[in-house]
């Protein structure tokens, strides 16, 4: 697996992602500064969490329109896997690689906690190490993670099995009590149509080491390491 991690001014979880990738694959990821014109020849591009450009405009809006994201879009169109986590997910929706938007959390507060999710489908390059319906715990840390799309889009996402993670209660039941930020249909992570782009709000990278209190996130990076060798 050859992975590139995009770094914008204001990105702040690049270290966490790079360490998770190394834990799963044994290989070091490459950091790519947003101003570098050419993307390296890689088979995975990660857009990590943070506050790109301060996110003083709508979250991810400025990064989503940056030259480097146009290059990422071209790579994605050519089949390169792209993972966007947290601010990365927001940026991927702004770029148009994924449908929908991330609105402010329903309770209007930043929320950082360990969230229980269910793996909705394990039929993707990002989730093959999990079993369908598996309950996993990933931390969340966001202010705008409330996924919204119109009903037709949501129906389509579900119809095409593109919802990978949903928020659940502590027992792993997908319900209102477990929906920590008000997301439509408890959606925490989705794929694009070609299934080579995943965007998700929770941070699997912060659950990849026993010292972090859990290793549920390792499966996601191992899935990628497996398929990308």
């Amino acid at each position: 697996m050859r992975a590139a991690v995009i770094v914008f001014p204001g990105t702040n979880r690049e270290k966490d992602i790079a360490e998770a990738l190394e834990r799963a694959s044994g290989k070091k990821a490459q950091f790519v500064w947003h101003g570098d014109s050419d993307l390296p020849d890689v088979d995975l591009i990660v857009v990590p969490g943070g506050f790109s450009y301060g996110d003083y405009l709508r979250c991810g809006a400025m990064a989503g329109n940056s030259p480097v994201m146009r290059a990422v879009k071209q790579k994605a169109d050519a089949g390169v896997r792209v993972l966007g986590v947290c601010n990365g997910f927001q940026i991927l929706t702004e770029t148009g690689l994924l449908p929908g938007v991330l609105m402010r959390n329903a309770q209007l507060k930043f929320i950082c906690k360990k969230a229980t999710l269910t793996v909705q489908n394990s039929d993707s390059d990002f989730s093959s190490a999990y079993s369908e319906g598996q309950r996993v715990v990933f931390p969340v840390a966001h202010n705008e993670g409330n996924y919204f799309a119109d009903d037709a889009t949501l129906d389509r996402l579900e119809g095409e099995d593109r919802v990978v993670f949903r928020y659940a209660d502590a027992d792993g039941t997908v319900n209102k009590a477990g929906n920590i930020n008000g997301s439509q249909r408890n959606i925490a992570g989705i794929l694009n149509e070609k299934r080579n782009v995943l965007g998700m709000m929770p941070h699997p990278e912060n659950a990849t080491d026993p010292a972090q209190g859990g290793t549920d996130g390792l499966g996601l990076f191992k899935s990628l390491a497996e398929v990308l060798q």
């Binding site: 979880r13 270290k15 966490d16 360490e19 929320i111 950082c112 840390a141 912060n206 990849t208």
Partner: peptide
């Protein structure tokens, strides 16, 4: 403390609520 990102950097071994926080 749930409004504070206490997990970023991935080194937080003891989160708020204990006697002291511990970071690796």
């Amino acid at each position: 403390w749930e409004q504070y990102d206490h997990l970023i950097r991935g080194e937080t071994l003891q989160i708020p609520g204990g006697d002291a926080a511990v970071v690796r």
